[in-house]
């Protein structure tokens, strides 16, 4: 079988664009058969192979458009404008940044500031600002991300409502940032639900989806285990600062990495433009 360089290059581009699909080999094989059949058909009418390849690719559509239609079709349509989900992707990336900042602050706080903490100091203002803007802000943006995930995965019903409700409860619970069991549990379950939607639909990269879904719950588990063991001791407030900082740190960083990947995927979706490509040779 003759090989055609232009077609092969296109197929490689499609492999990159659809790398998140579990059935990638099947999808690319089908495209390869289609494009090679088209080239052979056009060549049989007297065209040169190079021209035939260009015509075949022009008919097939550019890689971005085709990859986008694959994504939207798999998720049950584009009922919500791509502009929204792209913005939600940006929101997710910002949320990842806020979570990272909060995680870093929390470690510094628990390690260095809390032992000498007095509510009258400016430290308390910084604490409240970081808790509110960093954590609550991140969770509010994660709620927006959850809506976009529901849309892109085509999830409906109890599962979708559950994801938003849990993430919303997590956002409310962040108002008491010190009660890490609350926001990590609700937010973690909300993120896990979102992650299951992503993994089931197969539309997003698996690694970030998995990290996003398990990050907060992993951090919470670490915190529970370490505090049960009284690892690092108890402070004057009756807390477990070391268990606290390790658990929150792990939860925030893992979630931030996953969230950034999910956000990048949401943001990368181009509006589907399938209006016109000449179909005749």
């Amino acid at each position: 079988m003759a090989r055609y360089a232009l077609i092969d290059g296109y197929l490689e581009a499609m492999r990159d664009g659809l790398s998140w699909r579990r059935d990638l080999d099947d999808v690319v094989s089908e495209m390869e058969d289609h494009l090679y059949s088209t080239v052979e058909h056009i060549c049989s009418s007297g065209k040169q192979p190079a021209d035939a390849q260009r015509i075949a690719l022009d008919r097939f559509g550019d890689p971005t458009t085709v990859a986008t239609v694959y994504a939207s079709t798999n998720t049950g349509g584009l009922a919500m404008p791509t502009e929204f989900t792209r913005r939600a992707g940006t929101a997710a990336i910002i949320a990842a940044g806020l979570l990272t900042l909060f995680g870093m602050y929390w470690i510094i706080w628990s390690e260095l500031l809390e032992p000498r903490f007095e509510w009258e100091t400016t430290g308390s203002i910084v604490y409240m600002v970081m808790s509110f803007l960093g954590l609550t802000g991140a969770f509010a943006l994660m709620t927006v991300t959850t809506v976009a995930i529901i849309q892109r995965t085509g999830t409906r019903g109890f599962f979708a409502i559950g994801a938003i409700t849990l993430m919303g409860l997590g956002a409310v619970a962040t108002l008491g940032a010190w009660f890490i069991g609350g926001w990590m549990l609700f937010g973690g379950l909300g993120a896990l639900t979102g992650s299951i939607m992503l993994l089931r639909s197969g539309v997003a990269p698996n690694g970030p989806s998995l990290l996003y879904g398990l990050g907060l719950l992993a951090g919470l588990c670490v915190f529970v285990v370490l505090s049960t063991l009284e690892f690092g001791g108890v402070d004057q407030w009756g807390d477990y600062p070391v268990a606290n900082e390790i658990g929150v740190g792990i939860g925030c960083f893992l979630t931030a990495v996953g969230l950034a990947g999910v956000g990048r995927w949401l943001h990368s979706e181009e509006p589907a433009d399938i209006e016109h490509t000449p179909i005749t040779a």
Binding site: D33, G61, V69, N74, I274, T277, I279
Partner: peptide, 27 residues
């Protein structure tokens, strides 16, 4: 197969339906 389906779509519609061929496969 997909190629034949798309070819038939084009022929039967007298080339009126001009979707990029690659977008038919997801459907």
């Amino acid at each position: 197969h997909g190629y034949a389906v798309i070819d038939e779509l084009r022929t039967r519609s007298d080339e009126t339906f001009d979707l990029p061929e690659g977008t038919v496969y997801p459907a």
